[in-house]
Amino acid sequence: MWTWFHKLGSPPWMYRISGRILAILLPLTIAMLVVGAVWGLLYAPMDFKQGNSFRIIYFHVPASVVALAGYYVMAVAGAVSLIWRMKMAEVAMKCAAPVGAALTFLSLLSGAIWGKPTWGTYWVWDARITSMLILFFLYLGVIVLYQAYENKEAAGKACAVLSLVGMVNIPIIYKSVDWWYSLHQPATIRFTEESAMHSSMLQPLLLMILAFYCLFTCALLLNMRSELLRRGASTSWVRGLAVN
């Protein structure tokens, strides 16, 4: 039995490259967020049924979409870290979890705020909100499991396994919640109706989704950079940074 212990992915290289990416991506993201928000909140036409309150979908939908995608990013990074023993993938997985959890929380929060004018209550057991809540728990599970392990290498592996298990389960959870919702409450108000949306409403939404993807990437990279510094605190490349 041969056991190879690779050290793929060099932290100094990643730190340098991510710095360069952020220098471009961060201003771009902010610009897209501002343009998308102004477009969606001020210029997009008002919804015929819900009035202005529908405009929160310009935050709610992108946050939900990217929060879900973030879980897959985390799980795939976890798989890479397990299969190829790549440290950098483990860093990415660990750093994606809080970003994804924050987006999930934003999605839940904006959904609740939207719920008040739309349904007259802050919380409705709607299929999508419920699925988001479960996704939030899945993220929390990974974060708390990571914290619970004293040995951080073990923590990384355990979380990689857990996030893969979660990834397999997410489609099942989403389908089951959809079925549950259709069983108990025949859909009266759908949360989003992208298909029925006029293109003048859709365009700013697509821009905001793109902007949230970029936001996720920026937050992930920033998080990874600080994690790399923390892990490499005693190494020469970090000391070299501190001197400059």
Partner: peptide
């Protein structure tokens, strides 16, 4: 299996497992 080596695995296992029990 994931929590057996942890001292306070009890609460943690609920958080990890309950979402997966939902379907």
């Amino acid at each position: 299996a994931l929590t057996v080596s942890l001292k306070r695995g009890g609460m943690l296992i609920s958080l990890i497992i309950v979402p997966l029990y939902i379907p």
